[in-house]
């Protein structure tokens, strides 16, 4: 069980990284990072968010057992994904606007409550709920167990396996010579990607039945 989760994560984790890259990369680059410790802290919190999402899903799917078949229903899966994308899109737009237009009233209010650490954690949760093919495969393996704890353990190991592909995020501080320009670009692309997630991967995707 432990081995299988780990191996599944290791073998399919590149797909997880591909699915999460549009959110993780611009976010980490957009934050003001002074050195490797701060970078590692932000990436660590994002990973923690992913772990929480994974364990939560693993517990639910494992505990619900046969009922979780409903979770694997493509229509429910699409709606869940649309909600997750809408939320992550909104968060990206808000943090992108806050970085780019700090003088706006909304941005000042958002900045008062925004903390990079919490932002990182939330991004991790949302990307953790992103139902990519490996995630779907892991869930389908767990729902037959009929045991929440086994599901949690399976997803925790799956998380460890997939996390290997996120290691490159720890090297962002190495770009320090160009970091100012990269940060500006990342902050602008946060808004663009946020709008894309919110509209196209979220709202339009959620309403796909009518948007054909």
């Amino acid at each position: 069980m432990i081995q299988e989760g780990l191996l599944l994560g290791l073998s399919t984790g590149s797909f997880c990284a591909i699915s999460c890259a549009p959110v993780a990369i611009p976010f980490v680059f957009s934050e003001k990072i002074e050195g490797w410790k701060q970078n590692a802290g932000l990436v660590g919190l994002m990973m923690l968010g992913r772990l929480v999402a994974y364990i939560g899903v693993g517990f639910l799917v494992g505990a619900l057992g046969g009922y979780a078949v409903r979770y694997l229903d493509p229509e429910i899966q699409r709606r869940l994904l649309a909600v997750s994308n809408t939320l992550v899109g909104a968060l990206m737009i808000a943090s992108g606007l806050m970085h780019n237009f700090p003088g706006l009233k909304f941005c000042r209010k958002f900045k008062a409550v925004y903390r990079a650490g919490w932002g990182s954690f939330l991004y991790g949760v949302f990307t953790g709920l992103n139902i990519c093919p490996p995630f779907f495969l892991a869930a389908s393996r767990v729902f037959g167990k009929g045991d929440g704890l086994s599901g949690m353990l399976y997803f925790a190991m799956f998380f460890v396996g997939t996390s290997v592909y996120f290691i490159p995020l720890l090297g962002i501080h190495l770009f320090k010579d160009r970091l100012e320009t990269i940060r500006m670009v990342a902050r602008l692309s946060l808004i663009l990607l946020g709008a894309y997630f919110l509209l196209f991967q979220g709202i339009f995707f959620g309403a796909a039945g009518r948007f054909k």
């Binding site: 890259a21 549009p22 670009v185 990342a186 692309s189 663009l192």
Partner: peptide, 12 residues
């Protein structure tokens, strides 16, 4: 930013 956006969204 556009390049980063479309490249990452296309990757995703």
């Amino acid at each position: 930013a556009m390049l980063a956006f479309v490249a990452l969204a296309s990757l995703g």
